[in-house]
Design a protein around this nucleic acid. Structure first.
Lengths: 196, 196
DNA sequence: TACGTTCTGGACGGAACAGTCAAGAACCTC
DNA sequence: GAGGTTCTTGACTGTTCCGTCCAGAACGTA
């Protein structure tokens, strides 16, 4: 019927995401995006709308992918639940510590920069935090059923604590990683979980 | 000798800080600052240098004031150390939860937005995180001497964990506060601290 | 191959941006 | 009150910003 798009939409959205990730929303100009993607302005505006719309798109995709990655890391049978939880917490700490460019997590960056002014970003951020907390709570409950975490503690409260620790590790990582080392924080958080 | 400044420097710096706090570094124009302070551009540039320098100034002041406030909250005799620690953790959670405008903590906002690109901000942020961690560690050690926290745990590791929880509460607060409520997180963090 | 449709690239307009500067105002000292 | 110095105001420059628009290119269909 007509001329098809000549660019790979996923690749373009990935480049846009990386640009916003590196320099923030207000710190990224449409011309930066044009340079990062190689697209002309007409293509960008035609395919994705304006800058704000484009940001919401990549932010939404990021939140979806993050939630899905955590689900894959934590979901599974009761038997290995504690090991998966432990592995995930340590993996987040190690990934943050080795993030030399200090870009951190886009969810954290975006909510920090925009949540106060942009209700769409605030809502999506909150929804994502809640989804992460639920995934952690399910894994805690599974670890309790397997006898690896004390059964009488409230899994929702432990999940809230663990999520806060993870987001805190992320925040501290932006300061250049080290207060007593992020891995030590993760290990300590796991060590204080009530065992049967 | 000459004409003195007609503005109150502290008041101006406070207004500048609030403006950056509300809209971020890249999201704040010099004209926004001019409007917030009522000063002309010549006065602003003459007294504080360019936008970046002005930001570093208010960020530095903020870090100093934050550290000092935490010191006042946590410093004191061994006897009440645990109570001070507990009070501080709960106070941070309550303050974050009741922060309706979602501005959060400027230290978190600034490091999230700029640490990757601005080494001065990254260095000051890291220094502040380390100072906060030391203050918490001292308070934990005092609580251990008073017999309120188990003596054989490493105060530095517990301090790292508590700092991460506090920064995590702050980060979650930006998403619109509630995953299982910030206060519950603070209470759970205190509950899992090893008691004698 | 010819046509209609959609995509592409870049030029363009008007607004906002950071930072400079000069003319005049305000003050202290003498 | 006169002189010298600093502060204030706001106009100004040149750049960068976002978003629009159009001429031409690329494709599917007939």
């Amino acid at each position: 019927m007509a001329r098809p798009r000549s660019f790979d939409q996923d690749a373009v959205l990935g480049a846009v995401r990386d640009q916003f990730w590196a320099t923030g929303y207000a710190g990224t100009s449409v011309d930066d995006i044009r340079a990062a993607t190689g697209l002309g302005k007409g293509s960008l505006y035609g395919a994705f709308g304006d800058k704000h719309n484009l940001f919401l798109r990549v932010f939404d995709d990021y939140c979806t992918a993050l939630t899905e990655a955590v689900r894959q890391a934590l979901d599974g049978p009761d038997a290995g639940a504690y090991g998966r939880l432990r592995g995930h917490v340590l993996a987040v700490a190690d990934a943050t510590a080795s993030d030399v460019c200090l870009r951190g997590c886009l969810l954290a960056k975006a909510t920090a920069e925009l949540a106060a002014q942009d209700t769409a970003v605030a809502a999506r951020g909150r929804q994502t935090f809640e989804a992460l907390e639920e995934l952690i709570a399910s894994c805690v409950a599974a670890a309790q059923r397997a006898g690896d975490i004390k059964a009488d503690s409230d899994p929702a409260r432990l999940a809230g604590l663990l999520l806060a620790v993870l987001r805190g590790i992320e925040a501290l990582g932006k300061g250049g990683s080290s207060p007593s080392s992020l891995r030590a924080i993760a290990e300590t958080a796991l060590a204080v979980l009530p065992r049967p």
